[in-house]
Write a protein that binds this DNA or RNA. Structure first.
Length: 227
DNA sequence: TAGGCCATCTGGTCCT
DNA sequence: AGGACCAGATGGCCTA
């Protein structure tokens, strides 16, 4: 288990945030320079809402990794011009020639089919990676050339935790509104829309996800817990 | 050099 | 039948 997995399993505790800033940069989780010290102090201090919607959080393109990650493809995407057998030095059962002419013809057809299947699969994986890039773009971590791009698994785990944290913050806000509405009901009731917000639950989260302070949401695959 | 992460190929299964 | 989805295998690149 590497450092990032460990961090994610801790959920968004203060320590985890500090660790994240070391690995993914100081603006991860809104802890960058744009965040005030008061916001930083609010982390897990009664409220479990460490995020502030800074511009950092939505900052631009992700392809910052010198590594060959999903965003920076090594090869052309399309079937035309793409030669998988040359681009990758991999064994292919369809790369071998057969002896008889009919077999050759048949394997050519099979090979053509195989290549089209490969191209389709490649396209599918590229779409998946594009979606992951889109997810990286909207979750709070540093997007800068000096910061390593989140791995796929880290992206998914971080996104899950972020969603849970947002839902929890929303729930807290709802409770606060309900409380305020109670206190002021005798004088000036809050607008109807806000009152509704205070009474209804939009997110069908399990109770455990919304109770407690800075709960660890660690519904993670067990393989990630292996050392 | 080992380990992590990734892209790609491949065959199997399921769905339309 | 063809396409989507999935998981295993393989090899390349990068970092500690």
């Amino acid at each position: 288990m590497n450092v990032s997995d460990e961090i994610l399993l801790k959920s968004i505790s203060k320590d985890a945030l500090l660790d994240l800033t070391q690995r993914y940069g100081h603006s991860a989780f809104g802890l960058g320079p744009a965040v005030s010290s008061s916001a930083r102090g609010a982390v897990c201090a009664g409220s479990c809402f460490p995020f502030t919607p800074t511009t950092d959080f939505l900052a631009g393109q992700v392809n910052t990794n010198p590594n060959t990650e999903s965003g920076g493809e090594q090869t052309s995407d399309d079937e035309d011009g793409f030669n998988p057998l040359e681009s990758r030095k991999k064994g292919s059962s369809f790369g071998e020639d057969q002896a008889s002419g009919s077999l050759i013809k048949k394997t050519k057809e099979q090979r053509s089919l195989r290549l089209s299947i490969n191209a389709r699969e490649r396209r599918r994986m590229h779409d998946l990676n594009d979606a992951l890039d889109g997810l990286r773009a909207v979750i709070p971590y540093a997007h800068s050339p000096s910061v390593r791009k989140l791995s796929k698994i880290a992206t998914l785990l971080l996104a899950k935790n972020y969603i849970l944290m947002q839902a929890q913050a929303l729930e807290e806000m709802r409770r606060l509104l309900a409380y305020l509405n109670q206190g002021q009901s005798l004088t000036s009731p809050v607008p109807a829309a806000l009152a509704t917000l205070g009474q209804t639950s939009i997110y069908p989260l399990p109770e455990s996800a919304l109770t407690g302070k800075c709960t660890t949401y660690s519904g993670t695959h067990s393989s990630l817990l292996k050392p």
